[in-house]
Design a binder for these strands. Structure first.
Length: 276
DNA sequence: ATGATGTCCTGGGCGC
DNA sequence: TGCGCCCAGGACATCA
């Protein structure tokens, strides 16, 4: 369940091992994760130099000096680890391994195989079907009260559903949406178009704050999340709401307790006492 | 068009 | 101790 903060943490962790490095080898240990890995994947990557490690929404984009871009999504259990090349055997769910001129292995491991790794050219990137319909980044200047209010204006569905919709705003997943709505004192079931401008303005500020704090904490939404540098990132960040069914609400002055409901097949955690 | 539901996948937790 | 069941969830497909 890596959301934007975990992907950003992974990106930052991968930069020292990938940026400017030459890829000397690629091993596919299966042909498909969630979607097929291109057949010519190894051929197109080996011998190339990595220009940078970028992020768009929950995707990593790794441009190469050949003009190709590696696209990677972590799904819900995907992670990268980096280690010096040695004789330690690969693990069961190590699906793709990159070898660099720094004598390192960059290993993509994903037990639940909800992630993906693919390739396109730099020219195809902007119009790529994975990115074409994506909305703005939540940490960018374009994500503001006026923007979000306009997006929600015609939405008859619940605010929570809309915050998860990547065509409204990208990068948010179940955890940070629950957290932000709790802190913003907004009910997840409230009809999106019914939010007043004050609610929306407050929500935008809180979403940014929650994401920024999670990035600072080094990614925290999965208890066995391993940062790209190989360091274990335990729950350094205390969730106020997510996963706390039956416990007290942490909002100042609130005496309610956290409930769990189901929205669109997903668990929503919230406090019915203070989230209106 | 929009919205609701089903699908992919495995490991972990739980009840019996 | 072990088996079966259910749940977690991002994004896309497929229905109404």
């Amino acid at each position: 369940m890596p959301e934007l903060p975990e992907v950003e943490t992974t990106r930052r962790g991968l930069i020292p091992s990938l940026k400017g490095r030459k890829i000397l080898g690629v091993t596919k240990r299966r042909n498909k994760i969630r979607i097929a890995i291109p057949e010519d994947f190894e051929k197109r990557i080996i011998g190339c130099r990595v220009l940078s490690v970028d992020r768009r929404a929950k995707y990593l984009q790794i441009p190469l000096d050949s003009g190709d871009v590696i696209i990677c999504h972590l799904g819900m259990s995907g992670k990268f680890t980096v280690r010096k090349i040695d004789s330690t055997p690969f693990e069961k769910h190590d699906h793709v391994i990159f070898e660099t001129d720094r004598c390192e292995w960059i290993i993509y491991n994903d037990p639940r195989r909800f992630g993906l790794i693919t390739l396109c050219t730099q020219g195809e990137l902007a119009g790529h079907k994975l990115f074409k319909k994506m909305a703005v980044e939540p940490l960018g200047n374009e994500f503001n009260g006026a923007y979000l209010k306009e997006k929600l204006k015609i939405k008859k569905s619940a605010i929570k559903i809309n915050l998860l919709d990547q065509s409204v705003v990208v990068g948010l997943g179940n955890i940070y949406v629950c957290e932000a709505l709790n802190i913003a004192l907004i009910s997840p079931t409230k009809k999106a178009s019914d939010l007043c401008i004050d609610d929306v303005e407050r929500l935008v500020v809180i979403i940014r704050d929650v994401l920024n704090r999670a990035i600072e904490a080094g990614g925290s939404s999965l208890k066995d999340f391993v940062g790209a540098d190989g360091d274990l990132g335990y729950f350094q960040h205390q969730f106020v709401c997510y996963g706390r069914e039956g416990e007290y609400c942490k909002n100042p002055g609130c005496i309610g307790e956290i409930n769990r409901i189901n929205q669109a097949g997903r668990s929503t955690f919230y406090c019915p006492e203070c989230q209106k």
